[in-house]
Design a protein around this nucleic acid. Sequence first.
DNA 1: CTGGACAACAGACCTTTGTGAAGA
DNA 2: ATCTTCACTTTGGTCTGTTGTCCA
Length: 939
Amino acid sequence: MRRRGSGSRRTSKKPPSPSPSEGEMTSQHNAEGGNKIQSPSDNGSLTEISQDAVGKLLRRANKVGTSKKKTTVGLCNFPFLFNILFSSARTVEFVPEQNGTQVLEPIGPLNTSEVEHCSRSSIGKDPAEEKCGHVSLDEGYMDKKDELDDSDWEDGTVAMDDHSVTIELNVTPDSSELAELVHKAHLLCLLARGRLIDSACDDPLIQASLLSLLPAHLLQLSNVTKLTSKALRPLMSWFHDNFHVKNYTNGEKEPHFALASALELRVGGPEEIAALSVALFRALNLTARFVSILDVSPLKPDQSFRPIASGSSKGIFNTSTPMVSKKKLDFMSLKKPLSCEKEKLCETSLAHSLKSKKRIAPSNMDQSKDPSVAEDLNHSVTNFPISEAQHINPESHITDKSHKPKRKGDLEFEMQLEMALSVTAIGSSKIKEESGENADSSSFACPSKRIKRVVGEGSSTSPQLISTAVGSRRVGSPLYWAEVYCSEESLTGKWVHIDAVNLIIDGEDKVEAMVAACKASLRYVVAFAGQGAKDVTRRYCMKWYKIASQRVNSTWWDSVLAPLRNLESGATGGVVHSRTNQIISTEANMNDSFVPTRSSLEDIELETRALTEPLPTNQQAYKNHPLYALEKWLTRYQILHPKGPILGFCSGHPVYPRTCVQTVMTKQRWLREGLQVKPNEHPAKELKRPNKPQKVQDIEADDYDCTTDSKEHINLYGKWQVEPLNLPHAVNGIVPKNDRGQVDVWSEKCLPPGTVHLRFPRAYEVAKRLEIDSAPAMVGFEFKNGRAYPVHEGIVVCAQFKDVLLEAFAEEAERLKEEEKKRDEAQALRRWYQLLSSIVTRQRLNNRYNNNWTSEVPNDVHCINDNVSRATVCDSNDKNQTPRQHQTDKRDTDLDTSLSIPVKDHEHVFLKEYESFDMETSLLTKRCQCGFSVQVEEL
DNA sequence: CTGGACAACAGACCTTTGTGAAGA
DNA sequence: ATCTTCACTTTGGTCTGTTGTCCA
């Protein structure tokens, strides 16, 4: 089945729960299912921001849609945006039992996995790569779409291939705006997604299940008061032995349920495994965060968006393409001896709580045994058995420094093989698509692909190999990990990076290299805890200048994160968990004096990182670098002052701190800032004046050579060369004016002391009438026809006249209003007179030249007030002002005469009973007892 | 293959204070 | 003679960011 356009989409049935419209989104959602938002400040603002962004997006897309341009990129995502945001709020008070039922619904409300998938995989990709594969995805889309303007969706091309959606992306001329909106909305989605996972990590059931699996000696970690990263290694070894990353999806399951499934099967996607590690830490009363790279669609258009996420990371997210084939799983399982003990344990612990009927073959289960765990207690990560590690997790060998390759070819082949197995479903499907052959065979058949090794220089561990097939799609990129707060890790404690997927502990400085090796960038790294979030990109990104331009406007991002940061710091800052015995009370309730909190210490740490970024190696990076500058890349109006210190060199050019870069301006520009150049200051910089055709000025310049120099150069001055503007004071009510008899009011700062700027209209006339000295205020220039025209607005007067003038203006305004009213009334009278005169004239002419005038009288007689039951037709002054009248039943042959006879001493009375109304002509005929009648057109 | 340097290009920015003829 | 209105003509050079190409 292949559906295209909205026509066919309309036929799809709606999901059970109606989707709220844009405007009602928040309220409806909150009402639905009784789910409340925990923190109004949090979700309120977040939702508002989300709504705003999504609303803009919709409007923008609708606009583009109506202009017959394909902008499917935004359209596809809108419905998901709604849903993801709902999901975000929905999870705050999450009850596992309820969700179990939700998840089991065959087609429920669009869940976030679809959103995630689509947003990760759909945006900005080539049509051929666009596979968003979920039926409910399309249905959710349909549902929302129906509530929106149908017509605006016609241009989006969504073709369905069985269970997949093809999205075509065409770049529109104003796509930058759209790209930014999509970027923002996508960010919000991923934020919400992170909160979902974080919420799942707090699930007591999952935590309890994890604890039940944990060997007794590892349980002691919960009593450790002085935690170091080293102490976590046995735990991570055990975890890594027992939980495996697979190209496996938990389908459409809601995160809590997906986590539970992964826990039960001990196999899951990277996100699930990382989340389980977080849950485990939290179960052990450790302060832990779930950290995720928000792999968001590009901020700028025309940048292809290839999600970092490999298919393996989409465990929770459903994907369009089938996940790793059964064959692959079997292949993996064949390598791994099984241990069913854990599985049984797992089953018993979860069987009652989880209704999952899915069970992966036991072959996917654990292959490690308890004894090995015991042995590994004091084992470092790098001593992990090579073969086992490789088999357990293809990526785990990355961290293995002691691994000795047999032969280069063999190693490459093995790596390729394992990568192929661990690669995402999308990856495998892409291989199929691109090579047109079996994914397995394609990956196996290319052992000659070069292996790139990225050596990460770790602080705690030895250099690690990060491997990826060069030229192939990105695989193994870390997307999710945990951060555990280790109080003994440094003087003040430290958040320690723990990547359970790749078995890396305290490898924060390796993340960037690993991500870079996968041809990705970490633009946003966000840590989630306590339903909140905090941007910790600085911790992992050493080359901030590379990502700064790819990040959204920091003001917006900070405002989005502000409420989430509070939640996050509330959860991790001081008292960690209410159920914990390990109270780390570094927070406010210590005493009144300032106590540095974890959050504030981390802020300082991140800020320090921002200020100690290493010098870039390429010159262009200095162009807009926030910390460093090369003189070469300064702009026309920039200068180094002071010129030093030199922080280093780049390609022979000295590197200066950015703080030395000062902006220089002309005297005129400083004037606008309310500043003037100090006397006897030499220009800090001279610019060559552009060679404009000077016309007459050239001739003058020839005559006065002494002025040529200043004409040819623009003198620029720095901030240190200026002082506050010293304008002449207003004296004796006289406004100091310039040589043009006006005051240049670039800003309020430019007003001479003792004067005010009055902007009301006709101010000049009012001041003139009161004989108050004033000067026109020139507020700027308008450029028309290649010339500058001064723009005047209001006047400048001495401050003491302000009130007088304002009063006068008020009186003037009142007077003008009165005059205008009188003028209007006079004009109305004139027009009435004109109208009635013309009517009478017309009647007279008709009477004189056309005896059958009555039949031809147009029905254009308008009675202004048709509710009036009386009409006075006598007018002693002007008989011609009688309303147009005609007698139908008693016609005088000489109407002119009849009209000329004043109807004195009689006032026509039109009684209701004598009225008649002609429906056809809408004419109401009123009759007086005297026989006089008036026709009135009903308005 | 990658990154740096450079050129080309497009868009943004800055510019910065009437006059003469015709008609009322 | 004086005042008011209207047409005139639609810059253009430089900076800056982006993109493509070449080369080490």
